[in-house]
Structures are given as C-alpha cells and as structure tokens.
Amino acid sequence: MSLFWRIFALNAVVLGSATALLLWAPVTVSVPVVLTEAVILIAGLAVMLVANAALLRIGLAPLDRLTRLMTTVDLLRPGHRLPEQGYGETAELIRTFNAMLERLEQERAASTARVLLAQESERRRIAQELHDEVGQTMTAVLLSLKRASDEADEPLRGELQQAQEITRGSLDEVRRLVRRLRPGVLDDLGLISALTSLTTEFATHAGLRVVRGFDSELPPLDPQAELVLYRVAQEALTNAARHAEADRVELSLRRSEGAVVLTVVDDGRGTGVAHEGAGIRGMRERALFIGATLDVTSSPRTGTQISLQLPPPPTPETNK
C-alpha cells in the first residue's frame, strides 16, 4: 500500500469511528447547544485529533528517522545506516537512501585515495627539487662564502662569515622542509625510526616535551599504512605546537588485539568539543584511505587526544 493510501486509511478509520458513534450513540444536539452536549462534542473532537496524530506519527516515523540521518550524515565517518523499517514506499526510500550512502562512501574513498596519492607524489617531487636544486645551490654559495672569507681582510671577513652563518641556517631550514615533505627515514629505516626522528625534531624546534612509547613487536604494515600513521602523527604534533599551547605531548604506537593504535595526547588548553578544522578533516581523509578509525576527544584545560586505529590484518580464513 502506498503512503497516500495508508494516510487515507488512517483518517478513514478515525472519521468512520466518529460517524458510527454519532449514529448509534444516544447523543443528540439541541438548538441552542446545551453545555453537556458541547462538552461531549469537544471531547469527541479531541479524541479524534489525538488518535489521528498518533496514527500518523506511527506511519511517518521512518521518514522522521530518515530526515534526522540525512542532516547528520558525514562521509568521513562511514557506516551510518538506517534500519529498513516500514512498508511500501517508505521501506523502498530507506533502502534507496542506504544504497546511495554506500555508493557515496565508496566514491569518496576512491577520490580520497587518488587525491592523497597525487599529494604525496607532488610532495616527493617538490622535496626532490628542493634537495637537488635549492640545496645544491645554497651549498655552492656557502662554499664560495667560505673561500671569500678566508681570503678577505677585516672587517669584510666578519661580514662574510656572518653571511655564511645565515646561509648555513637557511640550508638547514631547507633540509628540514625536505624531511617534512618526504621523510626519507621512513623509506630507509621504517616507521619507528621515522616517528622517533619526527618527535625529536618537534622537541628541538617547537620546545615541546615529547614522551614516546612504542611496542617492541608490531605487525607488519604496508607502506601506505605507515605513511598515513606518520602523517597523522605529524599533523597532531603540529596542532599541539601551534594551536593547543601545550607543553607536553605523549605519542605512542601500540598493538591492541591485533590492531595497531597510534595515540597522541597533549596537555594543552583543549576546547571541550574537538574543532573539526582542516587538519583534523585531513586526518580523517587519510584514515578513510586505509580503512582506519580516527577518534578525537578534547576536554577544557586537559588537552586533546587523537587516536588512530588500524584494522587487524586479514587472516587466511578471512581471505578464503
């Protein structure tokens, strides 16, 4: 039965019941209307309205749930589905909406994967150009300044040495940018060494006290998962240094029931409700890329906790 005919049937039942009561009940209407008759009519009208409202609420409840889900759905938090309740057009609408969500989540995951792969490729290209072009040019300038300062007399020698120190500092900054754009230590030495180098760099340049904790036996991870873990840790440390006004950060990489969990906790100001800025949205996109789950909790004056949980690797039975 379509939604129109269900609503029509509900109203027909209410109006038919009221008509039957008027026909067979020992109730008459005088002219002018007596007070008791007016009370009976008003009470009957109230009963009809309440019954009609209750029946319509029951019939339209699945549409209300669908509306609430449509206003709160977030493709970066996949898995939200509405139970297929109701009949006819309502059930078909819910099934269509759930299928649409499934399709949109798959398309979002595919587009996110393409964007992140292109982003990492561009980062690699920029890092390579900085290293090969800018780094080598600045190194040549540094050597030229060194030769010139060795042959120059005072006070020109002092000025050349000062320019040499400025150039050396700029070269160190370029090398630091290259490491942030494409961490070579991640490719060469693995995730633990890369996270150790990352936290050491933040402790040195941002003045944060970073406490590390790594499990000794972690399951093997594919390169994409390692890169996502590294980028999420990098973004979390950046947020703690720039926005949270934190003094201490704890970074841990643990194994929990076969899954790998990265946790970054700071003692910053917190917000009570974690603000979904561009940084956190980027973390969620990276988590979606590898099928991981990202949880962000923030409490006033107690800091923020970011937790990224990778799903356990598939077992042979699962592959079968």
Rank of each mutant, 00 (worst) to 15 (best):
G135A: 06
Q106A: 15
D132M: 04
Q119A: 13
R157E: 05
V141Q: 04
T139H: 15
L143G: 01
S149D: 04
E154G: 05
G158Y: 09
E120L: 08
L160M: 11
E151R: 15
L145I: 02
E122D: 08
A127P: 02
S149E: 11
A140N: 13
R114Q: 12
E129T: 12
P155Y: 07
P155V: 06
A118H: 06
Q161L: 15
R147Y: 06
L130Y: 13
E159I: 03
T139R: 14
E122Y: 11
A118E: 06
T112Y: 03
A152T: 01
A140D: 14
D153I: 07
Q128Y: 05
E159D: 12
E107W: 00
L145W: 00
R124S: 11
Q106V: 10
L116T: 03
R125M: 06
L117K: 12
E107V: 06
Q128F: 07
H131G: 13
G158M: 08
Q119E: 15
E122F: 10
L117S: 08
L117E: 10
E133V: 12
L143W: 01
Q128I: 00
D132F: 01
V134C: 03
V115A: 15
E107T: 04
D153G: 14
Q119N: 15
A152Q: 05
A127C: 09
A109N: 03
G135D: 13
L156M: 11
Q119R: 15
D132P: 01
Q119W: 14
Q128R: 11
A109T: 05
A118D: 07
R123C: 06
R125G: 00
E129N: 10
R123A: 11
L130N: 05
E129C: 05
M138I: 02
L145F: 04
I126D: 06
L116D: 02
Q119G: 12
A110G: 02
Q136G: 07
R157F: 00
L130I: 06
H131I: 00
A127I: 05
E159R: 15
E154H: 10
Q128N: 08
R124L: 12
D150A: 11
A152R: 02
